[in-house]
């Protein structure tokens, strides 16, 4: 009789413990739900996590993280996630509020942890619709205020430049941080994360070397570029370019002759090779500038978001390659 009971308990125990491997296999089979703050981080996380993670981005491709307004669905998405990958450096001004609103309990990875932060120089061109005098701009934007201009660059960071991913070496740091974070949240797959991260880092290292080499080949006087976008500070620093900000030329309203003359003078004086003015939407004005100054008109630069699938910058590596190719083409053209 005790044999029978023992047997039954043993049987039950066996049955129960047999559920464990099945259960854990089943649990292990579900990918880790991760939310990335924007598309570039989403891509990096996917590269590290592979099929072990299911990454969604809050600010999708072609989106603008500066003027992003999260929807209730995204709040829910965040609540159900186990990991949040954010950039940090005040890039996502809306994130603290969203985290609180959604009641996110998981782990947050700050991707930019540990990089050498670059500060924005005083008087860096902030492209709002007013004519700022030189030197006053740095102060105007130390506080968070809502711009409701209908243009798409309401930069209001602190003094730090958050666009660290533009330097591929920093992207490597990002990847390491992400891998570490994922491993902490999902130790079972830590080895896989590590392996994939290493592979990807190797790719990035090669990319970085290639970029350095190609840009080094540019003559010294063909390294200046005019841009209204101050997102390429790290890129410029890493690869030896100079991004000259343009002042005063606003987007929607018509330029005055004085503003245009000032730009022409600047381009001529600093012997700038290429002009990238994304937010002057009249292409004829750009052509006029090119004609007047002899500078080349650049194409589109991708700074804060990837392009949608099928576009030229749908992954981080593609984005960097595309930007490099665009810049090189403009600077080498004559």
């Amino acid at each position: 009789m005790s044999n029978f009971y023992l047997n039954r308990r043993a049987l039950l125990g066996l049955a129960l413990t047999s559920a464990l491997p099945v259960g854990s296999v089943w649990a292990a089979g579900q990918p880790l739900p991760v939310v990335a703050s924007f598309s570039i981080l989403q891509d990096l996380t996917r590269q590290v996590g592979g099929d072990r993670v299911s990454v969604s981005a809050l600010v999708g491709p072609d989106g603008d993280a500066h003027v992003f307004e999260p929807t209730p669905q995204q709040a829910r998405q965040l609540q159900q996630a186990k990991v949040l990958v954010a950039n940090g450096l005040d890039f996502e001004g809306w994130l603290p509020r969203l985290k609180k609103a959604s009641g996110f309990q998981g782990q947050e990875i700050v991707a930019s942890q540990g990089i050498a932060v670059r500060t924005l120089p005083k008087g860096q061109g902030h492209d709002h619709g007013h004519d700022h005098g030189a030197g006053k701009e740095g102060h105007d934007h130390d506080h968070d205020h809502d711009h409701d201009h209908d243009h798409d660059h309401g930069h209001h960071h602190g003094p730090n430049d958050p666009h660290a991913w533009q330097d591929v070496k920093n992207a490597i740091v990002y990847v390491r941080n992400i891998a570490k974070g994922l491993a902490k949240a999902d130790p079972a797959n830590a080895a896989q994360y590590d392996k994939q991260a290493t592979q990807y880092i190797a790719r990035l290292t090669a990319l970085d070397a290639s970029l350095r080499q190609r840009f080094a080949a540019l003559p010294a006087e063909r390294r200046s570029v005019v841009s209204t976008h101050d997102a390429f500070g790290y890129f410029a620093q890493a690869y030896g370019l100079r991004f000259v900000p343009v002042r005063g030329l606003s987007t929607e309203s018509e330029p005055s002759a004085r503003d245009l003359a000032a730009l022409v003078k600047q381009v001529r004086a600093e012997r700038i090779g290429a002009i990238f003015l994304e937010n002057i939407s009249d292409p004829r004005l750009l052509e006029q500038l090119a004609r007047e100054t002899g500078a080349a008109i650049g194409g589109r630069l991708y700074s804060d978001a990837l392009s949608p699938d099928g576009g030229p910058a749908s992954t981080y590596v593609d984005m960097v390659e595309t930007n490099a190719a665009t810049l090189l083409k403009a600077l080498q053209a004559r």
């Binding site: 209908d150 018509e254 330029p255 245009l260 939407s281 009249d282 004005l285």
Partner: peptide, 18 residues
């Protein structure tokens, strides 16, 4: 288009004559 385009159509760009 956007409002920007409307403004361009309404106000033109005499400095951008090609």
């Amino acid at each position: 288009g956007s409002n920007v385009d409307l403004l361009h159509v309404l106000f033109g760009s005499v400095l951008a004559l090609d």
